[in-house]
Nucleic acid binder design. Structure first.
Length: 921
RNA sequence: GCGGGUGUGGUGAAAUUGGCAGACACGCUAGACUUAGGAUCUAGUGCCGCGAGGCUUGUGGGUUCGAGUCCCUCCACCCGCACCA
């Protein structure tokens, strides 16, 4: 029987399905291991060969761990709510629920064709009411909790209310939107509505007026991680800053825990660094500056309080409400004009244009609390409303932005740190002694910071302060295709709906567009009211809502009573190994960590961190092919002759190019334009050019896994994708190389058959040579799979098969463990051969082979002999030869004479089992 | 600008962590078998050189008996952040 992969693969995929081979249950007899893929967003294009890269890697690891005796949870699902499906709905009029369903069916099919060991009984779809009911439930929990800074934990709103009733805000250290102070009496005398408004200042899910990223084209607000370089990540539309009433999640409350938790994680340094950066912790001080001739003061944040004697002016953000207060009559017109200008700029313009310096003087002055000098207060958009206090003390001598501003507007510059000449640029380094700085003169910067903060606190001018760059997550989207908020409004105040009323279903609407009056699409829903009278929230949740806790839901995916049962979460705990794209570095991976920490605080989950080990698989890039049309003709010139002509390169579909040779007939049929095309060939062939680009439809370089599977089989696809190189690395897809892998599998298959393809495995005793080949591979595979070094594992298997082929091995003692070795990588061929070896059932539960050192002992070692570091010849010596014996053998070898002629041996370095180096001068 | 990462044949890549650079594949060359080859098998294949031999891991330097690997300098590319006070 020849290697008929199509038949074999279908057969075993069916077997796995029908026998629920990969369904797992809680089993306290076995250690658990949780392997998770970032679930896909199902799009109309289906999977291309880049998508399964991570899935294959995790599947190999799952199967390996199972062979190692672990109870492996390895689920899959779909991140099905989100913008692209809705944009598609707007264009085609098809309901996103329908298209999503269709796409998911296609994805599931494609995934099954690759032979993944998923427990399909745990499949989740975020847009399914049975699933989003729990997304809504978690939201209600966030709504019902606040964050206690003292304990660094979430606590129930009831407890906060009790405290307010007894003590007011006294002794409360809570994460809040704005600072409030009131007594117990004051609290108790407030109306119900007032109380609720105050509480939303503390809730972890809250509605508030905040500066948001508004994207008019998408008709929605966006979170910070959904905006890159001032445009929306999805679609690339301009984004404006705008103050709006929106739902947010108080992720900032968890800043410290999010930062500290990173240390214990087995994530790449670069990924942890990206997260640290995004959280952006800085330490410094908040300081009040009095406004001259007024009772008011400005609070600023600085990380360089040591330079306060050099603060010669102040700058406040244009969006700060202080601007109105501080602008004097004479400056009013000028300031208004400036505010108008900044508000009309998109984020992109503002970012792109960091060089031009703009700003206006408000007319007011502040008093530097240390120099007592009057310093002008300006407003400029280089100070951001959203960071710190939205106001700064400007120290032009030691901050390059302040320096640029000061020189542009002719403001005073005073050097306060020694160390550089500041006539041309500022000196920003934290090295040097303080000068012109009163009480901190002569101190090093580090010490000066400490001393001045103490002084600031003593004088009650301000306090030490830690700041984070992380912003609260804007959580509402003015879109249709997302989870509805379990919220209704009574007299403008939001109320949560009861748990037993969940899920709040997404209503049907006639058109997926905002209303004429600019309300979100949900406003179109008819008779959609809580208890028939109260307005529901009309926004929906963002894309990351459904993905922030899905890994927990998998643990108990069909539980209708609870999000997850304590039994399930106590057994599966968290994800041991997570694999997915780096693009989720600051979105999903921050939110999921945040939700997990919150859920732990309220007793739902048990581990502080959701994803213990995480690997970012690289991207598979496309390898585009080009044909070269001679300008103004329908004539195409082959790649190596193209320089003789004036040509236009044109993308050609990679599926009609083989090894860079164009299939001319297929090309002619490809488009009517090419029907009569003529060709200038080289050696009778048309050779195409190539380039590495992103894999995309428009570049005609998309390779579909289905077609690879049809041609070579899923096992070949799996092996090939892993053979390309380290998983973390991005690499181009080149179909040429796949032949080698397919050839390997056929060679592997042939080990078990004779020349006439009769199954032929003998029970003769294996020789030492054969055992050595096997055990070497066993050892290497165990090491490499654990390191996720699959490319080297595969090449080791190739070496093994090549060697066994040379030895003409057909012994069961060798060939049986060999099937288990390959089974995580190529499970279909492994199952088939396992069955042919007379075994019943699946190979998936067999113990993975372990090597025995006794077969690996070498009798002799081949020593390279180097003279002055250059290898000249080798000598074969017994493995147990002593250092002296090795040295003697090397030095007395005849071949050495010619290399050391005219010199003397000074030294001989012998590294047993490795090499000899003779130093001669 | 700041932070992180990567540079090795024609191509994808390996190198037991300081010990024979280029394993394993692709591609290419030659040959065998074939009606045929986009099948299979054999041999060769880093570069220069007819050869002896020399050179070679982005550049230049250093440490070492010995460096792809460690240290310093510079260059190129990729990723993240970017008026974050």
């Amino acid at each position: 029987m020849e290697y008929n992969f199509q038949e074999i693969e279908k057969k075993w995929q069916k077997y796995w399905d029908e026998n629920n081979v990969f369904e797992v249950k809680i089993n306290t007899e076995k250690p658990k291991y949780y392997v998770l893929d970032m679930f896909p967003y199902p799009s109309g294009a289906g999977l291309h060969v880049g998508h399964p890269l991570g899935y294959i890697a995790s599947d190999i690891y799952s199967r390996f761990k199972r062979h190692k005796g672990f109870n492996v949870l390895h689920p899959m699902g779909y991140d099905a709510f989100g913008l692209p499906a809705e944009q598609n709905a707007i264009q085609t009029g098809r309901h996103p629920a329908d298209t999503t369903k269709e796409y998911i069916a296609r994805y599931r099919n494609q995934l099954k064709n690759i032979g993944f060991s998923y427990d399909w009984s745990r499949e989740v779809t975020t847009s399914n009411p049975k699933y989003y009911r729990w997304t809504q439930w978690i939201f209600t929990q966030l709504f019902k909790h606040w964050f206690n800074n003292k304990t660094q934990k979430a606590d129930s709103i009831e407890n906060l209310i009790k405290h307010f009733e007894k003590f007011g805000t006294k002794n409360i250290d809570a994460a809040y939107s704005i600072e409030l102070t009131f007594s117990a009496d004051e609290w108790n005398n407030k109306s119900e509505k007032e109380k609720l408004l105050i509480l939303s200042n503390y809730r972890l899910a809250f509605r508030a007026k905040t500066m948001v990223n508004w994207c008019p084209e998408l008709g929605t607000v966006l979170a910070n991680d959904e905006v890159k370089e001032g445009v929306s990540v999805r679609g690339g539309f301009p984004v404006f800053q705008k103050e709006m009433d929106q739902w947010s999640l108080r992720v900032t409350a968890y800043s410290e825990r999010l930062l500290n938790g990173l240390d214990e994680l087995e994530w790449s340094d670069s990924l942890k660094e990206i997260q640290r950066n995004w959280i952006g912790k800085s330490s410094g001080a908040e300081v009040y500056f009095k406004i001259a001739d007024s009772e008011d003061q400005i609070l600023i944040y600085t990380t360089r309080p040591d330079t306060i004697y050099g603060a010669t002016f102040m700058v406040i953000a244009p969006e700060s409400n202080l601007v109105q207060k501080l602008t004097t009559k004479s400056k009013k017109q000028e300031v208004e004009k400036y505010l108008d200008y900044t508000s009309k700029r998109t984020e992109r313009e503002r970012i792109a244009d960091t060089k031009s310096i703009t700003g206006v003087f408000t007319g007011s002055y502040a008093v530097n609390p240390f120099t007592e000098e009057k310093i002008p207060i300006w407003t400029s958009d280089y100070v951001l409303g959203g960071y710190g206090t939205g106001a700064i003390m400007a120290v032009p001598a030691h901050d390059s932005r302040d320096y640029a501003f000061a020189t542009h507007f002719g403001l005073k510059i005073i050097q306060v740190v020694e160390g550089a000449d500041i006539t041309a640029e500022s000196y920003d380094d934290k090295n040097g002694k303080m000068i012109n700085s009163g009480i901190i003169n002569g101190l090093e910067v580090k010490d000066a910071i400490e001393k001045i903060i103490n002084e600031i606190e003593n004088k009650k001018l301000g306090a030490r302060k830690i700041n984070f760059r992380l912003r609260d997550a804007i959580f509402s989207r003015q879109r249709y295709w997302g989870e509805p908020f379990p919220i209704y409004y009574k007299e403008g105040v939001p109320y949560i709906i009861e748990d037993n009323e969940l899920p709040l279903l997404l209503p049907e609407i006639d058109k997926f567009a905002p209303t004429e009056t600019g309300e979100p699409p949900l406003a179109r829903a008819e008779n959609w009211k809580y208890q028939g009278k109260y307005e529901y929230e009309l926004s929906t949740m963002p894309g990351f809502a459904g993905s922030s806790a899905y890994y927990i839901r998998y643990m108990d995916a069909t539980n209708e009573e609870q999000f997850v049962s304590p039994d399930a979460v106590n057994y599966w705990r968290n994800v041991d190994f997570y694999i997915g794209g780096i693009e989720h570095a600051v979105g999903h991976l921050i939110y999921a960590r945040f939700w997990n920490k919150f859920l732990k605080d309220i007793g739902v989950t048990v581990e502080e961190e959701p994803f213990k080990k995480l690997v970012n698989q690289g991207m598979i890039q496309g390898r585009s092919n080009f044909v070269y049309r001679i300008k103004n003709t329908n004539k195409f010139v082959s790649f190596n002759l193209r320089n003789d002509y004036d040509i236009t390169p044109i993308h050609v579909d990679v599926n009609i190019v083989h090894n860079d040779e164009l299939d001319i007939e297929a090309f002619k049929k490809y488009s009517p334009d090419f029907e009569n095309a003529e060709f200038i060939l080289e050696d009778g062939k048309y050779i195409c050019g190539w380039e590495i680009e992103k894999m995309s439809k428009s570049k005609y370089n998309v390779v579909n896994p289905d077609s690879i599977i049809e041609q070579y089989g899923a096992d070949t696809l799996r092996l090939y994708e892993m053979f390309l190189g380290p998983i973390e690395q991005s690499k181009p897809w080149n179909t040429q190389g796949i032949e080698g892998i397919h050839r390997f599998l056929r060679k592997f298959w042939r080990l078990y058959f004779d020349n006439e393809y009769n199954f032929n495995v003998s029970d003769e005793k294996a020789t030492n040579d054969e055992l050595k080949v096997l055990h070497r591979t066993v050892k290497k595979l165990n090491e490499d799979i654990e390191k996720l070094s699959y490319n080297t594992a595969i090449s080791e298997m190739m070496i093994c098969v090549n060697n066994l082929g040379t030895l003409k091995t057909n012994k069961q003692e060798i060939l049986e463990p060999l099937v288990i070795l390959i089974s995580p990588f190529a499970p279909h061929i492994a199952e088939e051969l396992w069955q042919k070896l007379g075994k019943s059932g699946t190979i998936a539960d067999e113990d993975y082979p372990v090597h025995n050192d006794k077969y690996l002992i070498e009798a002799t070692v081949n020593y390279p002999v180097a003279i002055n570091g250059k290898t000249r010849f080798t000598i074969e010596l017994p493995a147990d030869a002593s250092k002296d014996e090795i040295e003697k053998a090397a030095v007395s070898d005849d071949r050495i004479a010619k290399y050391i002629e005219g010199t003397q041996i000074r030294k001989v370095i012998v590294v047993p089992k490795r090499m000899v180096n003779v130093v001669a001068k």
